[in-house]
Simulated scan of single mutants.
Amino acid sequence: MTVTSRVVVEQLLRASLAQDMETFISLFAPDGFIEWPYRPDGVPGRLEGRDQVREFLIGQAGALVKFDEYRNTVIYETTDPQVAIVEYEAYGTVIPTGAPLHQTIIAVLRIQDGLVVSYRDYLNPLVLAEVLASVARG
């Protein structure tokens, strides 16, 4: 049975919320990538391959924020069965400061054979810039 793009996006969101990074990473093709087209300084623009994704998510992002809840999640299926768009609000905590976090996210994913080959994450860069500044102020 073929796994639909919607199902893969749902699995990614569940793994992300559970902070199950190994499951999250296993849903990527070996050469799959994540891009952040809009980001503050200090955040990479692109991570290529499972190893880079793992290193960043576990080493840096996992120590920065913890998401507690995703709200208003909508997954849009497109006329291309390999492309899905997800829109949601992420609520959580900035780990080093304990400050609350609210981030609006839209992501465009391309999925082939049940694995993510591209994940473009259009998060709100102003929220991320404030998180990074608050951590630097410590």
Rank of each mutant, 00 (worst) to 15 (best):
T93W: 09
T79Y: 07
G114T: 01
V94I: 08
P96F: 00
E89P: 12
Q82N: 15
G92K: 10
V116E: 06
P100D: 13
G114F: 03
P81H: 07
I105G: 03
A107T: 05
T104P: 12
T79C: 12
T104R: 13
P81D: 06
D80Y: 05
A107G: 15
L101Q: 07
L109A: 08
H102M: 11
G98V: 01
A84C: 09
G92F: 12
A90C: 13
I111L: 03
Y88P: 04
T78G: 04
T104V: 11
I95V: 11
Q103R: 07
T79A: 14
A90E: 11
D113R: 00
A107Q: 09
T78A: 11
T79H: 10
R110Y: 13
V86K: 00
Y91L: 11
G92A: 09
L101K: 01
T79S: 14
T104G: 12
T93E: 11
L115M: 13
A99R: 07
Q103A: 12
A107V: 10
G114D: 07
P100G: 14
E89A: 12
R110D: 09
Q103L: 14
Y91Q: 10
Y91I: 07
I105E: 01
Q82M: 15
G98N: 04
A84R: 00
A99G: 08
G98M: 05
V86R: 03
I111R: 00
G98L: 02
D113N: 08
L109R: 02
L101T: 10
T79D: 14
A99C: 05
I106E: 02
V116S: 07
A84Q: 00
I105Y: 03
T93R: 05
V116N: 02
